[in-house]
């Protein structure tokens, strides 16, 4: 069942993460924990879209890793801003 509706599950998950991130930003002042949570969830959202919507999971490994690195590097800079 989960496999059959995988795209639907992932879509719901992506929206839930978006709403959770917004809740964090609205309810809490910018703390190190909020920044880390937002950065990790953005990485996760990006990887879901790259692997399952863009369908790179079973496609060209160089393109997949290039896209994945993009979504590791820039969210990591969010964590780096904690030290600003």
């Amino acid at each position: 069942m989960k496999k059959r509706f995988q795209l639907e599950w992932l879509w719901v998950l992506l929206i839930a993460i978006t709403l959770f991130n917004t809740f964090l930003g609205e309810q809490f002042s910018s703390t190190a924990l909020v920044s880390v949570l937002v950065a990790i969830s953005v990485m996760y959202k990006g990887i879901i879209v790259i692997d399952h919507f863009m369908e790179l999971k079973y496609a060209n490994k160089h393109l997949r890793w290039l896209m994945r690195w993009y979504f590791i590097i820039f969210p990591s800079l969010v964590i780096a801003t904690i030290f600003f």
């Binding site: 978006t18 991130n21 917004t22 964090l24 930003g25 002042s29 910018s30 909020v34 920044s35 937002v38 953005v42 959202k45 990006g46 879209v49 790259i50 919507f53 863009m54 896209m67 979504f71 820039f74 969210p75 969010v78 801003t81």
Partner: peptide, 23 residues
């Protein structure tokens, strides 16, 4: 077109927290 569209979505996934969420 599909992969290009997903790329645009991916860019917004990064833009949204930077401009609207993180203080």
């Amino acid at each position: 077109l599909a992969v290009y569209w997903h790329m645009i979505d991916l860019m917004w996934i990064l833009i949204f927290p930077l401009l609207y969420v993180l203080r």
